[in-house]
Write a protein that binds this DNA or RNA. Sequence first.
DNA 1: AGTATGCGGTTAACACCGTTAAGTTACAAT
DNA 2: ATTGTAACTTAACGGTGTTAACCGCATACT
Lengths: 204, 204
Amino acid sequence: MSAPSDSKDLRRVILDEARHQLVKHGYNSLSMRRIAKEIGYSATAIYLHFDGKDALVHALIDEGMENLFKRLQETCPEKIEPAARLRQACLEYVRFGLENPEYYEIMHLIHPERMERFPAEMYRRARRSLEFIQDILNRGAAAGQFVLDSASVSAAAIWAMLHGVVSLLISRRVDVRIDPDTLIGTLVSHVIASVTLQPVRVQA
Amino acid sequence: MSAPSDSKDLRRVILDEARHQLVKHGYNSLSMRRIAKEIGYSATAIYLHFDGKDALVHALIDEGMENLFKRLQETCPEKIEPAARLRQACLEYVRFGLENPEYYEIMHLIHPERMERFPAEMYRRARRSLEFIQDILNRGAAAGQFVLDSASVSAAAIWAMLHGVVSLLISRRVDVRIDPDTLIGTLVSHVIASVTLQPVRVQA
DNA sequence: AGTATGCGGTTAACACCGTTAAGTTACAAT
DNA sequence: ATTGTAACTTAACGGTGTTAACCGCATACT
């Protein structure tokens, strides 16, 4: 709804409006023409700042990945001991997903065919969160608190567990009679158990 | 390319062509008009048999859910002892996803807003696979082989783990240096461990 | 037998979509 | 003053899902 004149950096305005539409109306109705109409420009103006819709979505994904990584960094400092840090990181990952379902959705809706089109440096940035978890595992292993065959495989497995629960919860596929926090607690406890070889004790 | 005359049950023909296009060209390019052109009918003919694209996709989802459930049923008979049966069910779930990525995709791409439009009886059928796993858990618990606080929560947690790994593998988000089978084996071992309270021993 | 009903299909059209080509405007530099 | 260029526009192409109106034809009924 902003006038065309009020912006010096149209790219930023486009991204903001795209994010706004994404959060408000969902990915399905994220359209170039609607973004353009809303910010008071013609649809083709967007193409002066983005190669196309894919590139725009990629930029949004990049934003989301950045936010997730920052959050993990800020809430899980090195000073926390490995097990607690891993637990914290898992919980923050899940919380991020549940608090930003639209972001989480586009961050994971890239299909195999489109994967190659995803810019390499974005791909690298997107993997920082995974590496963050892997780093926690390595430090825990070095401190003798974790037992793992392979940090990369364990990190991937943990990621799969976290992604699974976020994905199912976001899409409301989990029975409503199941308390989400109980489910999350169960999962995260299993995550910790999987690297500590301790029997699972679920904390609800 | 079939002639309009060769079919007595157009609904079936539409579904087959839709499935064919889905598997061959992916969900993105699944279009009413293309289906119609391919089977030699006008696009609007489809609307005589399906309420719209959503309904058509719902029918495909229903098919996929049915196939998954049948597969679990056939490959995991009751006679297998609970732990082995659970392991088998997990592996079959993952294999189903990896062998039918397009089906798996549409089976899980229903967004929250569209969820309510998803027919109730289809929803019920879709949950049979989850109930199948839950049943394995209950039998294992009754036999004293599994230890669980809640079969429904554990089943959901297991589902989350399996869905997570399938989802990541299908979308090629897992580092190529990680052997998929190792990852799957790790995950499934954790699944078993999570209900047997045994220390995890990964089988690669 | 003749007429009404309704089923199964059609064509035309609407309102969108992403994207491209060509044109316009305004302003900076030579 | 002219050229060039950056930023933006309009018009158009080919696609999408979907609806409205129409059409032929077999069946059912009077």
